[in-house]
Amino acid sequence: MMRILLVCTGNICRSPIGEFLLRRYLEGTAISVASAGTHGLVNRPMDKFSNTILRQRGITETADFRSRRLTTPIAKSSDLILCFEQMQRRESIQLAPTMTRRTFAISNFVSILQHLTSTGQIRSTVPEERLSEILMQPLDPRLLVPNRDDIPDPFGQPFEVFADIAERIEDALHTIAQTIGG
């Protein structure tokens, strides 16, 4: 079983949306999805707007969700860490330096996947093997340069802002799931 970890700041807004969406997209594979926050508000339910967004997408089994803080053991037990902002990537790597090559801002990871796909460097047809193959690729350093496409924190913002952020999350994770799922 391969493990993907989504990381935001409080683990109540973006990463829960990402966790539940990516889990749905990768259903039926041997890839598990979880989330945490670099400054996680421990044992809190997800934000009401995040919950509403998931319900609008037919995901209703969210009542048991509880936030958690990213720790070194959580980071090290993951095969891939996807962060919503470059700052979270840096904080994740500080906790688990051995995960540097497997920790990305989501926007950078999407760019990397698009490059690997367009150059035919992903060959496997089994999702977990595809993910492993992606993580083993030597990466063009230009693809690792932080871009400015962080997905900002909607905490405390009106629902419309959450909805816009959720669309960005959904688009990125859909691309990731399509690439991994083949």
Results as ranks from 00 to 15, higher is better:
E19A: 01
L21I: 07
R23V: 01
Y25A: 12
L26W: 07
T29C: 12
A36W: 00
A36Q: 05
G37K: 01
T38Y: 05
H39W: 04
H39E: 14
L41T: 02
L41Q: 08
V42T: 11
V42N: 13
R44D: 06
D47E: 14
D47P: 03
K48C: 07
F49R: 05
N51D: 13
T52Y: 11
L54W: 03
Q56D: 13
E61D: 15
E61C: 08
T62R: 12
T62C: 11
A63L: 14
D64V: 10
F65V: 09
R68P: 11
T71K: 11
T72N: 10
T72A: 15
P73Y: 06
P73W: 06
I74R: 02
S78H: 04
I81V: 15
L82D: 03
L82T: 00
C83H: 02
C83D: 01
E85W: 08
M87T: 04
M87W: 10
M87K: 13
Q88C: 10
Q88E: 15
Q88K: 07
R90Q: 14
R90V: 11
E91L: 15
E91N: 11
P97H: 10
M99N: 08
M99R: 09
T100I: 15
R101F: 10
R101S: 12
T103Q: 12
T103W: 08
A105F: 04
I106R: 03
S107H: 12
S107C: 14
N108A: 12
N108K: 13
S111N: 12
S118K: 14
S118R: 14
T119I: 07
G120V: 11
Q121T: 04
Q121E: 12
Q121L: 15
I122G: 00
R123T: 13
R123S: 07
R123G: 03
R123E: 08
S124T: 04
T125W: 00
V126G: 00
P127E: 10
P127V: 03
E129D: 10
R130Y: 05
L131H: 00
L131K: 00
E133M: 05
E133Q: 08
M136D: 10
D140Q: 11
P141I: 14
R142L: 14
